[in-house]
Every structure is written in structure tokens, then in C-alpha cells.
Amino acid sequence: MAYRDSTAEKTTITRNLKDLDQQTDNIYETLVILSKRANQINNGMKEELTSKLEEFASSTDNLEEIFENREQIEVSRFYERLPKPAAIAIQEYEEEKLFWKNQEKK
């Protein structure tokens, strides 16, 4: 997915609310758009991480294997270092890469 190549901030930054509502003229509509997109990104990341971690699942319950599975730890660390879904959604919104449709405004 595109979130791997994202240049979104990995830390929290302050944003001007007037800049965020320029496309919609309503900050609440903007927040709904951003939250729905962040949920989509988060679900995609979660599915991908789960599928990758299932590759390392074993049928044995050996505690030594669980704690020393380096590949699984590296995969988890990679996903922890990615920008947060909300930051990616805001970046997509600012770059005008999002499409939304308001049913009430026809």
C-alpha cells in the first residue's frame, strides 16, 4: 500500500484549522473525512501485519521460540516505525489525493 512510501510526520505536529477546512468549508466534515480515511489505512495495515505474522506462527508452544523469533520482532518493529494512520490521512488530504462525496450537497 501507499503508506509504506508515505512521507507523513512520525510525530505530532500543530496544524492550523483554517488550512484543514479550505476544501470543505466545514471543519467537522473534514474531521469525518480524515477519520474515515485513517480507519481505512489502519485496517489495511492491520490485515497486512496479521498476514505477515501468521507466517511465523507455529503449532508448538515452546516459550523459547516465542521470545527468540527475530523475524517476527523485526516485522513488528517495521510497522511500529511507520507513520500513524491519522498522519497519513492528513497528508493525503493536504495533497488533495482523497476523494469524497457528500450526499447532502448535491
Rank of each mutant, 00 (worst) to 15 (best):
M1Y: 08
M1S: 14
A2N: 15
Y3C: 00
D5Q: 14
T7E: 12
T7V: 02
T7I: 04
A8E: 02
A8N: 03
E9T: 07
E9K: 07
E9Q: 09
E9A: 10
K10I: 01
K10W: 02
T11A: 08
T11D: 09
T12I: 04
I13N: 08
I13S: 09
R15G: 00
N16L: 07
N16W: 03
L17R: 05
L17Q: 09
L17N: 14
K18N: 05
D21F: 06
Q23A: 04
T24G: 02
T24R: 09
N26L: 11
N26V: 13
I27C: 04
I27W: 13
I27A: 02
Y28I: 04
E29N: 13
E29W: 06
E29G: 06
L31A: 12
L31I: 13
I33K: 09
L34G: 11
L34H: 11
L34I: 12
S35Y: 14
S35D: 15
R37E: 15
N39V: 15
Q40N: 10
N43D: 08
G44P: 02
G44T: 03
M45E: 05
M45D: 02
K46C: 00
E47H: 00
E47P: 01
E48C: 01
L49Y: 03
K52P: 01
L53V: 03
E55N: 10
F56T: 00
A57V: 05
A57E: 11
S58L: 01
S58Q: 13
S59T: 12
S59R: 06
S59K: 09
D61T: 00
D61Y: 05
N62T: 07
N62Q: 04
F67G: 08
F67D: 14
N69L: 01
N69F: 05
R70V: 14
R70T: 13
R70P: 09
Q72S: 10
E74N: 12
E74C: 00
V75Y: 07
R77E: 14
R77S: 10
R77D: 14
F78D: 12
F78G: 00
Y79V: 05
Y79F: 14
Y79G: 06
E80G: 00
L82H: 12
K84G: 09
P85F: 10
P85K: 10
P85E: 12
A87R: 14
A89G: 08
Q91D: 15
Q91Y: 08
E94K: 14
E94S: 11
E95Q: 08
E95F: 09
K97W: 07
L98Q: 04
F99P: 00
N102G: 01
Q103W: 05
K105M: 03
